[in-house]
Amino acid sequence: MPELLRKVNIQQPMQAIWTLFKKDLLLEIRQQYSFYGILLYALSTLFVLYLSMDAPEPRVWNGLFWMIQLFICTNAVAKGFLQESRGRWLYYFTLAHPITIVLAKLLFNTILMGLMSLISLVLFRLFLGAPFLDPIRFFGIVLLGGISLSLVFSFLAAIAAKAQQNAAILAILGFPLILPQLILLQQISTTQFTDHSAFDLIPVALLIGLDALVVILSTILFPFIWKE
């Protein structure tokens, strides 16, 4: 690990982000229990759902799907900022600018959450059926949803890491804030259940706009959180 981080260069932000991203990836590969933990979480929640109801109607399917995404996201993303000790964070800050750190973290979390949401979509398809008509397009919507959720929760996890009881507070901070995105996502996906050609571009554009807003805000505000 130290030899990897020695290569972090403040003069080259892109390279710094890439190195920090590789660091996160390496950590994830070395401590596989956390990845499998989230996977198991998704699987067991789904199995409970599967046993407590058979073949839900599309509206219920939709609500359940995005709720499960939300819970997976809080679990997957929360540890991003919480797993590393305070001493190690101080060490990172001697090496890289806070903005590169937060961007690397956002990048890693979006990819992690994208993967998780695709896996949970496959699991949903297997256990609870598929009310959507076009699988490829729904795939894209789920990916976009996973990214939106993970961006908001990554930043909130950074805030929660600074508060005392972090796991509980992440849900309190995040759930009301994510609601607008969640409503947009549910609107987009319900159109996929009834109409084969229907695809409303406006909510998608709004969602992407909100994502861009979250990224910009994170880069502006993150340095204030980690200043000691």
């Binding site: 908001v152 804030l177 607008p180 909100l210 807003l213 805000l217 959180i225």
Partner: peptide, 21 residues
């Protein structure tokens, strides 16, 4: 510091959303 950051973050996310919804 932390609550100021959350205040700003929440406000900037919230108000376009309330306008959009």
């Amino acid at each position: 510091r932390i609550s100021a950051v959350y205040n700003i973050f929440a406000y900037v996310i919230l108000f376009p959303a309330i306008w959009i919804l």
